[in-house]
C-alpha cells in the first residue's frame, strides 16, 4: 500500500509571532520555519506503517514556494521515500490546496492519505476533510490511534467528550492529533541520504485549477492586550480578591 503524506512549511512553533505594523499580515522575514508539528506526526505515522510492513511506499507532498523543499527533505530524512513539491508563490486557501491534492491523489492512487489536522499558522483545520469530500474518501480526523486491518482503517479520534472509534473503507484520509505518536529525530546519515532521494517539482499553475481565493484578508491585527495583574501573597488574600474585587466567587 502506498501512503501519501502532506507537509506544510510554517513558522516554528517556538517563535513568537509579530504582526506587521501596516496590518497586512504577520512578519515572517528571517523567522525560523519548520515542518508543521501535526504534519510531522503524519510523516512519523506513515513511516511506522512502512516499518510494520503495512505500507510499501511513503510519498510526501508539499505545496508552496521552493523553500518548502526543506520540509520535504526533513520528511525524507524521517523515512519517506520520495517527494513532490507543487510550486507556487501564492498563498492558497484550504480549498485550492485540497483541489491540488485531489489531483495528486488521482495520479498517485494511494491507499491511505495522512495529514496534519491543522496548520499552526492559519489554524483552519479544513484541508483533510475537503480532500475527503473532493475524492469521496472517508476520513478519520483528529486521530490518536490508527490500525489497518482487513482492508479497513480503524481510527480512534479525539473528540470533545472523549474518544470515538470509526471504521473506514479504503482508500481513506487520516488527520493527526497530538497523541498519535511522538515523532523521531532524523539521524545525520538519514539526513545525508535524504538529499539523494527523488524530489519532483510540478508547477501549481499546470494543474488546471483556479487558484484565486474567494476570501480576502482585509486586515491582520494584534489581539487585545491582556495586562498582568497583581500578585497576592496568600490563599486568604486570593479568596478575598476574588470575592470582593473581581466578584467571581
Amino acid at each position: 500500500m502506498k501512503v501519501l503524506v502532506t507537509v506544510k512549511r510554517v513558522i516554528d512553533y517556538n517563535v513568537k509571532v509579530r504582526v506587521k505594523a501596516d496590518n497586512t499580515g504577520v512578519d515572517l522575514a528571517n523567522t525560523k520555519m519548520s515542518i508543521n508539528p501535526f504534519c510531522e506526526i503524519a510523516v512519523e505515522e506513515a513511516v511506522r506503517l512502512k516499518e510494520k510492513g503495512v505500507a510499501t511506499e511513503v510519498v510526501v507532498v508539499s505545496i508552496g514556494a521552493k523553500a518548502c523543499q526543506e520540509q520535504i527533505r526533513t520528511a525524507l530524512a524521517l523515512g519517506a521515500d520520495r517527494g513532490i513539491q507543487i510550486d507556487t508563490e501564492l498563498n492558497l486557501d484550504s480549498l485550492q490546496v485540497a483541489k491540488l491534492l485531489a489531483k495528486v491523489v488521482e495520479e498517485e492512487q494511494p491507499g491511505l492519505v495522512i495529514m496534519g489536522k491543522q496548520a499552526i499558522d492559519s489554524d483552519n483545520n479544513q484541508t483533510g476533510q475537503m480532500l475527503g469530500a473532493l475524492t469521496n474518501m472517508p476520513q478519520g480526523t483528529f486521530a490518536s490511534e490508527l490500525v489497518i486491518e482487513n482492508g479497513k482503517a480503524k481510527v480512534t479520534r479525539e473528540i470533545d467528550g472523549g474518544l470515538q472509534t470509526v471504521e473506514l473503507s479504503m482508500p481513506a484520509i487520516v488527520t493527526t492529533d497530538l497523541r498519535l505518536n511522538e515523532p523521531r529525530y532524523a539521524k545525520l546519515p538519514n539526513i545525508m541520504k535524504a538529499k539523494r532521494k527523488p524530489l519532483v517539482v510540478k508547477a501549481a499553475a499546470d494543474f488546471g485549477i483556479n487558484l484565486t481565493s474567494s476570501v480576502e484578508v482585509l486586515k491582520v491585527a494584534e489581539p487585545a492586550k491582556r495586562d498582568g495583574g497583581e500578585m497576592v501573597d496568600s490563599v486568604e488574600a486570593l479568596v478575598a480578591k476574588l470575592k470582593d474585587e473581581a466578584k467571581v466567587i
Partner: peptide
C-alpha cells in the same frame, strides 16, 4: 478569526 494560536486576528471578507 484568530490565526497563529490567537497571536493575530484576521479580518476576512468572503465573496462566495
Amino acid at each position: 478569526r484568530p490565526i497563529y494560536a490567537g497571536n493575530a486576528i484576521a479580518t476576512v471578507k468572503s465573496s462566495d
